[in-house]
Amino acid sequence: MRTWTPTILYLALFMACGTVEDPDPINQEEVITTVRVTLTPSSGPQVILQSQDLDGVGPNPPVVSVSGNLVAGSSYAGTTEFLDESQNPAEDISSEVEEEGDEHQIFYQLGGNAQFSITYQDQDSEGNPIGLTFDLQTGTASEGTLLVTLRHQPDKSAPGVSQGDITNAGGETDVAQSFEIIIQ
């Protein structure tokens, strides 16, 4: 057993001096923390729908806010932004969605009884909609929800998809947030 003695000594020394270096904190990149839909009427106040989840997949749920009600029988110019507000300054992810427009599409779905319709106002390189800008036309006074979904790699040529129907879109969901809408 004599051969073991130096080995054990060496190991004991080894054991005493190993340490883990302090890791750098990671600021998650390309995380969408915030989705913001801005609805601008031809006259009157803007309506802003926002959902913000600063801890990402952390335990806190997103904070959802709707700045006001929509006016019945009006037309709104809509824009949707995706932001990474965990960075300082905040990073604008919407420009990347626009650059890779043929691989992304934003879908707007109505829930409840809300009476309004949405028309896409932008196009990707193939002439299909992306959905970062759109028109929103309200109908009669009503209440319901607007679900905003960002899909990655949808099949834009599938039936109905370029008209905004998500049913056949496939792909992968990057954002799915629902907002309470009151039209009066």
Binding site: T33, V35, V57, P61, P62, V175
Partner: peptide, 9 residues
């Protein structure tokens, strides 16, 4: 279930 901006998980 936890809610995130991507939906529920």
């Amino acid at each position: 279930v936890e809610q995130t901006i991507r939906g529920a998980f």
